[in-house]
Design a protein around this nucleic acid. Structure first.
Lengths: 144, 144
DNA sequence: TTTATTTCTGACAAATTTGTCTTAAATAGA
DNA sequence: TCTATTTAAGACAAATTTGTCAGAAATAAA
């Protein structure tokens, strides 16, 4: 469904947002440990998110990553997913056709659109703030 | 969402079922041409489906692949997907955790379960016969 | 029985995704 | 200014998925 890069990206974003809300700037090592991901690979994902203005990065000692709470309320899961995996998941055909719509549907089209739309809506309606917040009030986990 | 192997598998199954309903046994070359897929790779996928009893294969001249209409009514899309991609799509966690449920949820869990269930139900409730049949009464396409 | 055709099988190759490593660039603090 | 720390960047490596090829096994038909 989502690539590993994307999964790491979501976990990292949730962790950074949560730390930020506590006034703590999270650095790479800290993030990777807390979401149980390979450090160097996670660095790339974080950089990708930073390039898309989905989080702030700061170099140097005391540096690290931040997402202001106000920002976290504006960022949807769909933004993160799209920044890393692209928009294939939102618009793509189940059978991989470059073009597939009601006027020239693949055999799965009519059954698949509503699934895809549900997923899209869920991702577009879920903010990063929500995920980070719910993590606090009723704990959800970022590592096993 | 689905691997390429799985997409080929679905397309091939639909094509074979359709040909079978016309009394025609489809061979590899014919299938690959009509679903616009690499021949050798498709052979592997077909073999995988045959191993799972989702279609019959016959060697030798006039050989090829078949799915009896009665069978096609019993085969669900979920059977095909599971035979090729496994059951990760039905039960897997959005963030990739090996275990993720209400008692120990990942941050996306509560939002994701209904999406996953919808997809599962759709695949379980759609028969191969349906897809192959709809292809006839209101054409859907297997290649572009 | 022989031949031609077709699926089966496994080794190999290419492409993509995932992951690692090293060096550069920035910067906070002594 | 100097040093230590941290992200940025890009080359490289491993793993997985996708795709190819060649020969074996089965079988229909002559």
């Amino acid at each position: 469904m989502f690539s590993k890069a994307c999964q790491y990206g979501i976990k990292a974003s949730v962790y950074v947002a949560r730390q930020s809300s506590l006034g703590i700037r999270a650095n790479l090592k800290d993030i990777a440990q807390n979401i149980d991901s390979p450090e160097a690979f996670t660095a790339k994902v974080l950089h990708q998110l930073a390039k898309n203005n989905l989080l702030e990065s700061h170099k140097g000692p005391t540096g690290g990553f931040m997402i202001a709470s106000a920002q976290a309320q504006k960022i949807n899961l769909s933004d993160i997913v799209e920044a890393i995996d692209g928009d294939q998941i939102f618009n793509g055909c189940a059978l991989g056709f470059p073009r597939c719509d009601a006027s020239k549907p693949c055999p799965m089209h009519s059954k698949f659109v509503s699934i895809r739309e549900n997923l899209k809506k869920m991702l577009q309606n879920t903010t990063l703030h929500q995920l980070a917040h719910e993590l606090v009030e009723e704990p959800t986990f970022l590592k096993r």
